[in-house]
């Protein structure tokens, strides 16, 4: 027995389909159009607007920048200024260039620390007995669900001059050490905040590692340390790279951590952009910084990540 499908014009929602068809949309088209329209308006267009305003100059008024289009004697004039970009690369104090460089340096150093602390943790969880594994994983994820800002604040209570670490060290007659308002505190803050993001992809990779490979290596007489460096580590590289990206990328544009833990000398690009916008009310300069950051840092990373994914997909 076969049951025929009801003709498409009769279902309960037929009126909706007809209405949509009248404006040239199918149901399928609507599913695509709604998120596409939203993302175009609130993600792609804003980037265009930033680029436009980065070509204006600071002015006193509301909004505080010059008009790109002006009408004079009935003709429309387009005035574009490259001065913001020129200033970013030629500022006599090199403040912007230095901020870019130190953001990359701080993000890179923190990523190395995250690897050194996170790798043994991910490995230990992947090798833990079944009943322990889920609990340990939960303990890694739990801090991520609590507020990032509050965790950075908690860390500042730990590192400050009269903080927990120095009070503990004082019991043994050591210290006090100045940890707050240094680059060191920023490294600690980044590792502390992003460690779960490093551990999770690496864990997913390590847990899939075939134990028979390790046994074979041991049977052939390799010491555990040799087995680790010639089998486990190379096979887990995709996990290490994926996790490192999740630390490195957000760390570059970080604002909260350098503001709460870093000193006046810790000039990261996110903080410079913030000051340019809020303290100096120089919106066009801040916009130019955003575009430079996008072109110098974000787009190369996205392309690199895509190439990396292609390599991993190809290997499968």
């Amino acid at each position: 027995m076969t049951r025929a499908a009801p003709p498409p014009s009769q279902g309960r929602l037929a009126w909706l389909r007809r209405a949509l068809a009248a404006v040239g949309l199918s149901g399928r088209g609507l599913v695509i159009a709604a998120p596409a329209a939203w993302l175009t308006l609130f993600f792609l267009v804003p980037l265009g607007v930033v680029f436009g305003i980065s070509l204006a100059t600071k002015e006193f008024g509301q909004p505080p920048y010059s008009d790109l289009l002006t009408t004079e004697d009935g003709t429309v004039q387009l005035t574009l200024h490259l001065s913001n970009y020129i200033r970013i690369f030629t500022d006599p104090s090199n403040i912007y260039i230095n901020a870019f460089l130190s953001s990359i340096r701080i993000a890179a150093v923190s990523t190395v620390f995250a690897i050194l602390i996170g790798y043994p943790m991910a490995y230990a969880i992947a090798r833990a007995p079944d009943r322990w594994r889920n609990i340990l994983l939960m303990l890694v994820i739990l801090p991520f669900w609590t507020s990032f800002l509050l965790r950075v604040y908690a860390l500042s209570g730990f590192l400050r001059g009269e903080g927990v670490i120095n009070n503990t060290l004082a019991v043994f007659g050591l210290g006090p050490f100045t940890m707050m308002q240094t680059d060191f505190a920023v490294y600690v803050g980044i590792v502390y905040s992003y460690l779960p993001f490093f551990i999770l992809p690496l864990y997913t990779n390590l847990v899939k590692l075939d134990p028979s490979l390790l046994e074979a290596s041991a049977d052939l007489g390799a010491r555990p340390i040799r087995t680790f460096f010639s089998i486990t580590l190379p096979l887990s590289m995709p996990g290490v790279i994926a996790g490192s990206m999740l630390v490195f990328i957000p760390a570059i544009g970080e604002f909260v951590i350098p503001s709460l833990l870093g000193g006046p000398g810790t000039q990261m690009i996110g903080r410079i952009l913030w000051d340019e916008f809020f303290s100096k009310t120089n919106w066009p300069r801040a916009a130019a910084l955003a575009i430079s950051m996008l072109v110098i840092v974000v787009i190369p990373i996205m392309l690199m990540q895509r190439a990396q994914n292609a390599v991993v997909e190809g290997r499968r």
Binding site: I53, I249, P250
Partner: peptide, 16 residues
């Protein structure tokens, strides 16, 4: 948006 630094997203939306 997953890899976009917050400061860029913030300034872009404000200017929009």
């Amino acid at each position: 948006p997953l890899v976009m630094p917050d400061v860029i997203t913030g300034i872009a939306l404000l200017l929009l």
